[in-house]
Amino acid sequence: MSEAPKTLLELAGANPAPASLKDATLVVIDAQNEYVDGPIALPAVGPALKAIASLLADARAAGTPIVHLAHRAPAGVFVEGTEGAEIAPQAAPKQGEPVFKKELPNGFTNPEFAPALAKLGRKNLILTGFMTHMCVDSTARAAVDLGYGVTIVENATASRPLPGAVGKPSRSAQEVHDGALSSLADLFAVVVPDASKLG
């Protein structure tokens, strides 16, 4: 019987702990209506938005800084001024919670995002939002490059089905989501199942 695979973190002897609301910034990524009832609606968006709403309430009660990212595109989906581009009510920012617009998956491509995080003085980020394999993934990897510790809350993220590459079968939304989290957990993030597991 073959041995279970290990992450690169495990092979390096690292055992990073998840971030806590006491020492992190909560980042809500693209929790927008396109993912609720638009052409790229996500199968698990309802439970994920419920988890985001709960985590937002906990973060606000704890005094945790909260920032939001919102995708924008010139045509198709996420077009400025459309209902689909608006942040879903469950994840809507409150007064004092900045929203940074972006045109690429990585949130750090907005030049104002990194300085705003740096000003908060917290070196851990808790990431939630959509989609796991796209904007969550890209932002997490960029955050690590900039020296942040990253924690991702599994039930507060979601993905969509994708066609298979190079002739492989298509992948369900759950398979895409799980695969993205496995890849990130190899080196780039601590992945927790839900907010109760935050440090």
Score class of each variant (00 low, 15 high):
residue 4 A to G: 07
residue 5 P to Y: 10
residue 6 K to M: 13
residue 9 L to V: 09
residue 9 L to Q: 14
residue 10 E to H: 13
residue 12 A to I: 07
residue 13 G to D: 13
residue 14 A to C: 03
residue 15 N to T: 06
residue 15 N to S: 04
residue 15 N to E: 12
residue 16 P to R: 11
residue 19 A to S: 14
residue 20 S to R: 12
residue 27 V to N: 02
residue 27 V to Q: 07
residue 28 V to G: 03
residue 30 D to P: 09
residue 31 A to N: 10
residue 31 A to G: 07
residue 33 N to T: 00
residue 34 E to D: 06
residue 35 Y to W: 03
residue 36 V to Q: 09
residue 36 V to H: 00
residue 37 D to A: 15
residue 40 I to E: 02
residue 41 A to E: 12
residue 43 P to E: 00
residue 43 P to Q: 04
residue 44 A to P: 09
residue 45 V to L: 07
residue 46 G to N: 13
residue 46 G to C: 12
residue 50 K to C: 03
residue 50 K to W: 00
residue 53 A to E: 12
residue 55 L to N: 03
residue 57 A to W: 05
residue 58 D to V: 01
residue 60 R to C: 08
residue 60 R to I: 07
residue 63 G to K: 12
residue 64 T to E: 15
residue 65 P to F: 06
residue 65 P to Q: 04
residue 69 L to N: 01
residue 69 L to K: 04
residue 72 R to Y: 06
residue 73 A to S: 14
residue 76 G to D: 15
residue 76 G to L: 11
residue 77 V to K: 10
residue 77 V to C: 04
residue 78 F to N: 10
residue 81 G to A: 07
residue 83 E to P: 13
residue 84 G to S: 04
residue 86 E to N: 14
residue 88 A to P: 05
residue 91 A to K: 01
residue 94 K to D: 00
residue 94 K to Y: 01
residue 95 Q to L: 14
residue 99 V to M: 01
residue 105 P to A: 01
residue 106 N to H: 11
residue 107 G to M: 07
residue 109 T to H: 05
residue 111 P to Q: 05
residue 116 A to Q: 07
residue 117 L to T: 08
residue 117 L to E: 08
residue 124 N to Q: 15
residue 125 L to E: 15
residue 125 L to T: 10
residue 125 L to H: 04
residue 126 I to P: 05
residue 128 T to F: 00
residue 129 G to Y: 02
residue 129 G to P: 09
residue 131 M to W: 02
residue 131 M to T: 09
residue 132 T to L: 02
residue 134 M to S: 15
residue 135 C to D: 12
residue 136 V to A: 02
residue 136 V to I: 10
residue 137 D to Y: 13
residue 137 D to I: 09
residue 138 S to Y: 08
residue 139 T to S: 07
residue 143 A to Y: 06
residue 143 A to F: 02
residue 144 V to Y: 15
residue 145 D to Q: 14
residue 145 D to N: 15
residue 146 L to R: 15
residue 147 G to Q: 09
residue 153 V to E: 02
residue 155 N to G: 02
residue 156 A to T: 03
residue 157 T to H: 05
residue 158 A to R: 02
residue 159 S to F: 11
residue 163 P to A: 10
residue 164 G to L: 11
residue 164 G to I: 09
residue 165 A to W: 08
residue 168 K to N: 10
residue 169 P to N: 13
residue 171 R to A: 06
residue 172 S to Y: 01
residue 173 A to L: 00
residue 173 A to M: 00
residue 174 Q to P: 05
residue 175 E to G: 12
residue 176 V to P: 03
residue 179 G to M: 10
residue 180 A to K: 12
residue 187 L to E: 13
residue 187 L to Q: 14
residue 188 F to W: 08
residue 190 V to C: 02
residue 193 P to G: 06
residue 196 S to M: 05
residue 199 G to R: 05
